[in-house]
């Protein structure tokens, strides 16, 4: 009975060598300039913690996405938390009425930086079929949105696609904190250009700067 250096299931040692080569490549990449950020982004994109802001039927579709048949955790966004302070991805799933708008804004503000928002479904993106006095006509009037997922409600696969696209964006982002800030400034300029509504003024403050 000789003692083998190779792990069980890999008698020739080819897999172990390949893994070592992978590790060596990763180490080389980390040593190169910008490698630290690359590593952080790699970790960040595979550990998105979503907070579901579910107010209507889209939230049911969200449950289907979390469930075992489609399984959001395959993409590294498993840990659905119900407190904003532990989350970095907000999925707004459902109709937001004007009475709910300040609550949404408050919860968004409580999330730690860097943070991303996916607007799930027609209602959250544009008010949907509720073109009435009581419904907010799109959450981008009060918070910046990264991805809009169309549908009423959207298929869970569509939201998974948005998450995969978001992960691509995160892995290519050299400095998420900086780019988030720039994106928010662009958004504020955008809604100011459209004209701040009295409701938005109430939520964003007089200068429109949010917090």
């Amino acid at each position: 009975m000789g003692v083998s250096a190779n792990p069980p299931g890999d008698p020739s040692g080819k897999v172990a060598v390949a893994k070592l080569e992978d590790a060596a490549r990763l180490a080389r990449e980390l040593k190169a300039p910008g490698g630290g950020a690359k590593f952080v982004n790699w970790a960040r994109k595979h550990s998105l913690w979503p907070i579901p802001f579910g107010t209507a039927c889209c939230a049911i579709e969200f449950m289907g996405m979390v469930g075992s048949s489609l399984d959001i955790s395959r993409f590294g966004a498993e840990f659905v938390r119900f407190t904003p302070r532990q989350c970095d991805l907000m999925i707004v799933a459902g109709t937001i009425v004007n009475k709910m708008a300040p609550v949404l804004k408050k919860i968004y503000d409580q999330m730690a930086e860097p943070k991303w928002v996916i607007s799930m479904g027609a209602c959250a993106s544009s008010g949907g079929m509720f073109n009435t006095y009581s419904v907010l006509q799109g959450i981008d009037r009060i918070i910046p949105v990264d991805y809009y997922v169309p549908g009423c409600p959207p298929r869970p696969e569509a939201v998974l696609y948005a998450i995969i696209e978001l992960q691509k964006r995160i892995s290519e982002d050299p400095d998420p904190l900086k780019s988030r800030e720039a994106m928010r400034e662009k958004w504020i300029r955008g809604i100011k250009g459209r004209g701040l509504t009295p409701k938005a003024k109430l939520l964003l403050g007089k200068d429109g700067q949010g917090k």
């Binding site: 006095y133 509504t197 409701k199």
Partner: peptide, 12 residues
């Protein structure tokens, strides 16, 4: 009362 309220800015 109009369906979309008295604040047309809130609506496209």
């Amino acid at each position: 009362y109009p369906r979309t309220g008295y604040d047309p800015q809130d609506f496209p």
